[in-house]
Design a protein around this nucleic acid. Structure first.
Lengths: 230, 230
DNA sequence: TAAAAGCATTGATAAAAATCATTTCAGTGG
DNA sequence: CCACTGAAATGATTTTTATCAATGCTTTTA
């Protein structure tokens, strides 16, 4: 394993797409390849960031835990995505935790290496800025929808988010194995409430389930339900 | 009026605090001073941004309107703050509207001027990046609280936010004139629900009201209610 | 493969918040 | 100063969602 930055699958799509070959080599020498089992914590709320992660494979949730034990998922991360940059930029402790939703591989890049890179390559810095702006926009969307939409619509939206994030178009229908607990933390509601609306969707032939696996049969209907067009 | 950038009250605290005297002069020559009446729209959701705003006086809400007419406030902006940079960086349409909560003055800086500045002054660019990271963190906080806290706690938090944002410590107790509609759009709930909890707070001696003016008598109690310590 | 553990599902009930209707109050203009 | 208007406040009710409790799959493992 231990992929090289210069031949990495995400060389032309990651945050580092505008790095020179030299810069990539340097990155490659200093990076540290890590493997995480499903459920494993990649970084933990309250800790100091030592660098950032570049996800190579798998799925990650970034979430925060309330005092009452409830969890809220802030962001879903897929392969090719960068993880943990916000606290690094702000130079603050992690305000959320990153937990592998599946077996995950990620390269760790130290803070000093990263800071050096954004200081020396303006393009990387401005790509990073655009990424921040985009994630901020996404988060604002989430906030507004959470405040305005009922659970049914938010669930439809969450299923579409899972699909758009993790579908690699290998089969006709998108399937994902996700616990109802995790799904409810994405939607921002109780586990049972998610299950109930999921049952409705099943009756309407929009999704099917087998254990914790959910298959989306009618993405078009979900789009309609989510009112994402407005 | 028409304040000069070189003598501006916010010269050392704004996004432009690391500009040279020359850069400030240039900014000053190209900027455009604008006055907005209370309730006036500064920019509108869906429009293309032509530049950004640097608020000189007043109060501004950044909010989004749902299809059903409900509004959600995303951010509160005070004098010295920058406004409308996210869409500019992303080069996308405004995803929210900015509306004056009070009579407001703001300087408009054109996109080309701004882009030139962040290209030529690395410090401004990195300040901007840190600002983005901070606002992203704040928005994530909002999201998590909206998902996890009941209205009573969120109202307490919103009142504290108003105080921390707009209190210039000119009197013993902080007062603000805000419609219940606006307040409910900050909290993310219905107008009547806000009024009910506000009445509770009044009975408990935490706030007092006169018309639309709310006076915070016991910020300590609000902090306790909001559970912001955890 | 059987037992156990963990998770999904369903049901009943309670709590929280939204909505609708009405009354009261504060600011405005004649 | 008084009527008028719009917003605040309160009340009654409905809707939505959370919580608690019980049952049934499925997956793990002994």
């Amino acid at each position: 394993m231990n992929p090289s930055c210069n031949t990495c699958e995400f060389k032309n799509s990651s945050l580092f797409k505008n790095c020179s070959s030299d810069e990539l080599n340097h990155l490659n020498d200093s990076k540290c390849f890590n493997v995480y089992k499903k459920g494993q914590v990649i970084f933990h709320e309250g800790n100091r960031p030592l660098g950032l992660f570049c996800v190579y494979s798998g799925k990650v949730k970034v979430s925060r835990l309330g005092s009452d034990g409830k969890e809220q998922v802030i962001r879903l991360v897929k392969k090719g995505d960068t993880l943990g940059y916000r606290s690094l930029i702000e130079n603050s402790k992690y305000s959320a935790s990153a937990i592998a939703l599946d077996d995950t591989e990620a390269c760790f890049i130290s803070a000093s290496e990263f800071n050096h890179l954004i200081d020396s390559n303006v393009k990387v810095a401005s790509d990073l800025m655009r990424m921040l702006a985009k994630v901020l926009g996404d988060t604002q969307d989430k906030l507004v929808h959470l405040a305005m939409k009922p659970v049914r619509e938010r669930l439809a939206e969450a299923l579409l988010l899972l699909k758009s994030t993790y579908d690699d178009k290998k089969s006709e229908h998108f399937s994902i194995s996700i616990s109802r607990e995790d799904l409810s933390s994405i939607v921002g509601t109780a586990k049972e409430t998610v299950i109930r609306f999921l049952s409705e969707f099943k009756e309407e032939g929009i999704v099917s389930t087998r254990g914790s696996e959910i298959t989306i049969l009618r993405a078009d209907k979900l789009l309609q339900i989510s009112s994402l067009y407005d």
